[in-house]
């Protein structure tokens, strides 16, 4: 298979899951594992451009196909706007769900460059984040949408927090 643009060939057990192949055999530990039941989405990678849960794909099934992981988001020392958006808008805390979230977000923006908040929520609804409460993830993806290279909203400021307050 091709992983992040590089051809890899390995002798593996037929039952080996793609997640374990990536992590344990290729050392690509940016993709995480979080459940036994295909619910959490910390394992999301791309298979031929589609986000998939790599805990639910046999490594052998990915033979001959293209796999892309979080490690490939940064290109030539340039961060993907999605990566930057997550930093700008506090879209991560522990960082465990983050690679999966970013891979889904990138796929969404490739198909829909200007998604609504609801569309973003639907896109990541098969993935769980236990830390952020999702609102900052939505803002992060919106930030990325607004800052894509060539985007007409390139100059938009980062979505501000809605916190208002007074000191007593």
């Amino acid at each position: 298979m091709t992983v992040n643009g590089e051809e890899v060939t390995r002798e593996i057990e037929g039952r080996l899951l793609l997640i374990h192949f990536l992590r344990d055999h290729l050392g690509l530990t940016g993709t995480h594992w979080g459940c036994d039941t295909s619910n959490c989405g910390t394992c999301v990678v791309w298979l031929d451009g589609e986000p998939v849960k790599s805990c639910t794909v046999l490594a052998a099934m990915a033979g001959g196909h293209e796999v892309r992981t979080v490690e490939d988001l940064e290109q030539d020392g340039k961060l993907d706007p999605v990566q930057q958006g997550f930093m700008e808008c506090h879209g991560l805390q522990c960082g465990f769900c983050t690679p999966g979230m970013m891979m889904t977000a990138r796929a969404l923006l490739d198909r829909n460059p200007d998604p609504s908040a609801q569309e973003i929520r639907e896109a990541i609804s098969g993935q769980i984040c236990r830390c952020t409460g999702y609102a900052t993830i939505v803002r992060s993806v919106q930030w990325a949408a607004a800052h894509e290279a060539g985007s007409r909203t390139d100059e938009t400021d980062s979505p501000e927090t809605v916190a208002t307050g007074t000191a007593s």
Partner: peptide
């Protein structure tokens, strides 16, 4: 399992409104 122990996803929670003193 996470099929039986249900944790909120992005669709179950609103956009939070926060403030402070």
């Amino acid at each position: 399992s996470l099929m039986d122990y249900l944790i909120p996803t992005s669709l179950e929670v609103p956009d939070w409104e926060t403030g402070f003193t």
